[in-house]
Simulated assay, not measured.
Amino acid sequence: MAIKPTIYKFHISLSDLNRDYYDSLNLTIALHPSETLERMMARVMAYCIEAQEGLAFTKGLSEVEEPDIWVHTLDNQIALWIDAGEPSLERIKKATRLAQTVKVFSFNSKSDVWWEQSKNKVKQLSVSVLQLDWESIQSLVKHVQRTMNFSVTITGESAFIASETGECEVNWVTLQ
């Protein structure tokens, strides 16, 4: 019998001061059995940073042919493809063929090594790469509960997160 995903529910009050975008998000996220809390929260942060109408989580690790997050146009084309992690060059190339806009949110301890090995080839592609600070993501994970309310305020390349269990800040840098 297969192990089932763990379900998390987030109620997020989002204030993106960079884009003057304000929203109240109700997200239900399935944590795949092989996925870490850090990866799940990197997906949540990517969702908050890119929040817009039509943005949706996919089946994630359960469906390898799909990104982690996407937006479809009215004619069912992929307008935005978002991957969390350090995807292979082949996956990024595929994404640029299938989607109008491609973004990668790199987030873990091996992110610097991945970027150094990939940057020359990735720079030839039409893709945005953001690197979430690994220690910030680890700090955020300490506050995770199965059901939680929190607020996210984005300004510059930083998000301030406040929840019932505490506060933290997640920073990132734009690599490309």
Rank of each mutant, 00 (worst) to 15 (best):
Q145S: 13
A2D: 14
K121I: 05
N149Q: 14
H11Q: 14
R97Y: 03
S24E: 12
L61R: 13
E50N: 12
Q100M: 11
Y21T: 02
D75Q: 10
D16Q: 03
K93I: 07
Q117K: 15
Q138N: 14
L37K: 10
S15H: 13
K119F: 10
E157G: 09
P87I: 01
I12V: 11
R91T: 10
K121E: 12
I7H: 04
L31P: 09
V44Y: 01
R146Y: 08
D23Y: 03
Y22T: 13
P87H: 04
S109L: 09
F107K: 00
K9L: 08
F160M: 15
L140T: 02
L27V: 05
L25C: 04
L27G: 05
V152G: 03
S163E: 01
E50I: 06
W81S: 06
N18I: 06
L130G: 05
K94D: 12
G156M: 06
K123A: 14
W134H: 13
L130E: 07
M148P: 01
V122W: 07
T101W: 05
S62M: 11
L125A: 01
V122R: 04
L132I: 00
E116W: 05
E63I: 00
V127P: 09
W70K: 11
I78R: 03
H72Y: 11
K94H: 12
